[in-house]
């Protein structure tokens, strides 16, 4: 009886709280704007300061590398930062690919990543390859089957991908390499 009363009380409290209390946050560890309070004499100054991105000092850019041979493009258009670096990224390079995704493993759109069309497509495909191979299972929605060994049927075994298939219009059927 006591438990029932307590449960009823809790649910009533929850409904009251959820309707009346708004979730307001002043600081969040990774928001790029943070609120600073400063006391000058008797007045309290509250201001929002643009916080530096946590990645800025680790950033690698082609302009900063001295002995990098710049990629020659026939058009005068400036290559995007990924093209300029000329990295050979594979789908197993999860340390690089995880920079382009949200915390739920979803690829960021092009207006945020700032990539060119081709690189956005390439990176996006490689992110999904890494997710299918189960290499970034800590960056997944909460409800999905994270561990590949707990997936069903053909999805539970190890799979690797060929990056050359990314820009193929149609992936050719697997050839029998041992056929005589």
């Amino acid at each position: 009886m006591a438990a029932l009363v307590r449960a009823g009380f809790l649910s009533a409290k929850n409904t009251v709280l959820s309707t009346t209390v708004r979730c307001l946050s002043t600081t969040k560890p990774l928001r790029l704007k943070e609120i600073k309070e400063q006391r000058e004499g008797t007045t309290l100054v509250v201001e929002a300061v643009t916080a530096a991105s946590p990645r800025s000092e680790l950033l690698v850019r082609a302009e900063k590398i001295k002995d990098l041979v710049p990629i020659v493009t026939e058009a005068s258009a400036k290559p995007c930062y990924m093209c300029a670096l000329g990295l050979d990224v594979k789908h197993t390079d999860v340390l690089i690919l995880s920079q382009f995704v949200r915390t739920d493993g979803c690829m960021l759109p092009r207006r945020i990543t700032g990539l060119c069309r081709r690189q956005q497509k390439k990176i996006g495909k490689m992110v999904s390859m890494a997710q299918k191979a189960g290499l970034m299972i800590n960056l997944t929605p909460a409800a999905c089957k994270k561990d590949p060994t707990r997936r069903r049927e053909h999805k539970k075994f190890n799979t690797y991908f060929d990056e050359n298939t990314i820009f193929m219009k149609k992936i050719p059927k697997p050839v029998d390499r041992f056929k005589r």
Binding site: S53, L59, V60, L95, F100
Partner: peptide, 19 residues
């Protein structure tokens, strides 16, 4: 620690809110 200190390629735009 290694993931955090790995050299970064992509940086967020100025008014982007991290999720």
């Amino acid at each position: 620690e290694e993931v955090k200190n790995f050299p970064k390629v992509m940086d967020y735009p100025e008014n982007y809110i991290l999720k």
